[in-house]
């Protein structure tokens, strides 16, 4: 847990301080042919890609984009999911039935497939567009979880008592139901990060996500020349960054879950 947190903090610091620590401009493409596809060396610890750009600097700047996109997309998904789940769970009746059927429909299509179809129909997207896309396809799971939690919470005696006191319905929700959702949302959000980071990387690798020359961990990999084995450094370092972040985030998410729910009741 401590190690995972340290790894994550390291990546966040790198992302925030990118301009200060990156040795080169990640977009600079020196014209000289001699700078192309250089293996790791003192001047370029992670080597250079087929456009002569410094891979280390691109990975550092890529952290900004990849983590930034993931965090904002997850926050969007959580907000949407929590809002829809809360409304469905709290209102019940037809609202609930309709919301949950929509969720079922969305969950029945694999997310990657859905994303590919959507991007194919919109064409290349801006970073903002990718965030919206990832956010809008990520909420169904959260909303189902939140709905379940809300349905449990709203039958609690203290919620009934609050309603019986004459507290307006929205205040009952804000005061007594919402705070009860926070731990669950924290866990869900953390684990969602671990799904969204590789998703974005995958899209960007396929050229459907973050567009060059802006660096993201996914599209750096696609800049390897010829066979990946020939310029392994262009694939390895951003790949390692993705794997390490996802492992760290997953570990933290699992620990958080154990802490709020030691018996693993909310699994699946």
């Amino acid at each position: 847990m401590k190690f995972a947190a340290a790894v994550l903090v390291l990546f966040v610091v790198v992302a925030v301080a990118a301009p200060a620590i990156a040795p080169h401009d990640p977009r600079a493409t020196p014209q000289s042919e001699t700078q192309k596809n250089l293996p790791p060396s003192g001047a370029h610890p992670f080597g250079t890609d087929q456009y002569s750009r410094d891979v280390l600097s691109r990975v550092i700047y890529g952290a900004r984009v990849s983590l930034g996109v993931a965090v904002v997309a997850v926050m969007l998904a959580l907000t949407l999911g929590a809002a829809i789940g809360a409304v469905a769970g709290y209102a019940g009746g037809w609202t609930d039935i309709i919301c949950m059927r929509v969720v079922d429909a969305m969950l029945s299509v694999p997310r990657v497939l859905l994303l590919l179809v959507l991007v194919a129909s919109t064409g290349p997207l801006t970073v903002g567009g990718i965030i919206v896309l990832l956010g809008c396809t990520g909420w169904p799971g959260t909303s189902r979880l939140v709905r379940g939690e809300v349905r449990l919470l709203k039958e609690r005696d203290y919620v009934l008592a609050s309603r019986a006191t004459g507290t307006p319905e929205w205040r009952v929700f804000v005061l007594h139901v919402l705070p009860g959702l926070v731990p669950q949302l924290l866990v869900t959000g953390t684990l969602a990060l671990a799904t969204v980071i590789p998703l974005e990387a995958g899209l960007s690798f396929l050229g459907l996500g973050v567009q060059p020359p802006t660096a993201s961990w996914g599209n750096i990999i696609s800049d390897a020349a010829g066979r990946p084995g020939d310029t392994w450094w262009v694939v390895l370092f951003p790949g390692l960054a993705i794997v390490c972040t996802v492992l760290a985030v997953n570990t933290i998410g699992e620990r958080l879950r154990e802490r709020i729910d030691p018996r693993g009741r909310s699994r699946t």
């Binding site: 005696d157 008592a161 307006p168």
Partner: peptide, 21 residues
């Protein structure tokens, strides 16, 4: 809601009827 000022309730289990937070 306004009428509820005049009629109140006390539940059985004081461990569940108070918001723990």
């Amino acid at each position: 809601r306004r009428l509820r000022r005049r009629m109140q309730v006390v539940f059985q289990d004081p461990h569940t009827s108070l918001d723990p937070r």
